[in-house]
Amino acid sequence: MAVEHASERLVELLSRDDALQDQWVDAVAATLGGRISRAELERELTDLYQALTQALGKGGLDWRGEDYSEVRALLVEMSRTRARHGFTPTETAVSVFACKDVLAPTTDSTAEDITAYLQLTRLLDALGLFTIETYARAREEIISAQAEQLLELSTPVVKLWEGVVAVPLVGTLDSARTQVVMEKLLQSLVDSESEHAIIDITGVPAVDTEVAQHLLKTVVAARLMGAECTISGIRPQIAQTLVALGVQFGDIVTKATLADALRHVLHRSGAQQPAAPSTAGGDR
């Protein structure tokens, strides 16, 4: 039997009985455990069912074709909604695959019907995979949006003194985050006209070569802009790792604590120093 006949036959089969649609909705509803209201699901699947029937009627079985654009659009929307609401990929794709059961051949199916059914399963498999792919893409978008928000939250640049800004870095530094922090720091130098920046890494458990390189590049970039950076709070383990990695900080000023760094910076800029605490640290 030719493919055109298969799609014609499928349209007949699908339009034969309104109960088919309900069966589909039932099957899908069972897999989703009531997390989507029946009414919403019905609306979603009715649209899809109609679009699918129409596409079959017009354009045969090529799901990439122009005639299937409506079907694809509906599937994209569905996968995105599912991804946003935290459904699993299986729960998303099963909405498509469940449609197969509706037309599953019975003992009195004709050979033509079975051939048509096989064509339908191929089509639905393709559409199901398309759904999963769209779902994955939507998830990636959500994740990257969240990562971005997190970056914004976790990178405060604070003004410590007139002309001195600092970034206290807390948590694991990866390359992307370090880059964002550094861009923010440099911009804040411009905005506050500060000639000194302190990068405090007390709260950073580990530093790899790449992150160390970003730190170094930031210090050089700040110099190009006419500002000086001091790095404070390098933990002993980090110092060991950096040396082992062959990273050298050259002529970059490093201090044990943020307080030491601030004292150093104020001393250099000749600003009024806060009264030094009665320790040996208060060199002048």
């Binding site: 411009v190 590049k217 190009l224 802009m225 500002a227």
Partner: peptide, 22 residues
Amino acid sequence: RPAVAITLVELGLSLGGVRTAL
């Protein structure tokens, strides 16, 4: 500008001998 400074560093240009101010 910060973006310019970052790019220059990446490009490998440190402008040795040039003094800078904000």
